Simulated scan of single mutants.
Amino acid sequence: MQEREYIKDTKYCQILAQSRVTDGVYTYSIEKVYVKKKKRDEIRFCLYKDTLNQIEKYIPRSLDVTELELLELFKEAINQDVFSMEMLGSLKGILSQKKVKESKVSILSTESEEKK
């Protein structure tokens, strides 16, 4: 297997790509990681915080962000190549289908209002 570049190597994984958004207290991140035991790439949503012992210590808990912060994080993840082109293509298809469904609902509700 060809050796890949990584940002950080831990016992659990290698961080291959990373998006980061900081709010002054926490750093939110979406990462592409290679999980050594499973021998595969995965996407990880995570949280880091500066502590007295360590700068940007990984915090093993859920990542709670606003929709605006999530959009900013996704934008950065796309810019940092966290997601594959196949994944982005699939996401584009899902969003296009959602847009089509919403426009059909909008047209139907407009037609029913006009009949009244």
Rank of each mutant, 00 (worst) to 15 (best):
K116D: 13
D41R: 04
L91W: 09
C13N: 14
E102V: 01
L63K: 02
G89K: 03
K37G: 01
G89P: 01
E72C: 11
F74L: 15
V105C: 04
S96E: 03
L63M: 15
V25S: 05
L95M: 14
L108F: 04
R44F: 08
E111P: 00
C13G: 04
K57R: 14
L71A: 10
M85Q: 10
S109F: 08
Y28D: 05
E102P: 00
E31Y: 02
T51C: 06
V35L: 14
K98D: 02
I15K: 09
Q80R: 11
I55D: 12
K36S: 03
G89S: 10
E3L: 08
N53K: 11
E56R: 10
S19Y: 09
L63W: 05
D50M: 08
T27C: 10
S106A: 13
K36Y: 10
N53Y: 12
K11C: 04
F83N: 08
E76H: 06
Q80Y: 03
Y6S: 12
S84W: 03
A17P: 05
Y6E: 08
G93E: 12
I78K: 11
G24E: 05
T10N: 11
T66L: 08
V65D: 06
L108D: 12
K39R: 13
K37Q: 12
T110G: 00
I78N: 05
L52N: 14
Y28F: 15
G93F: 03
E76W: 00
Q80A: 13
V100H: 05
T110A: 10
E72A: 15
Y12W: 13
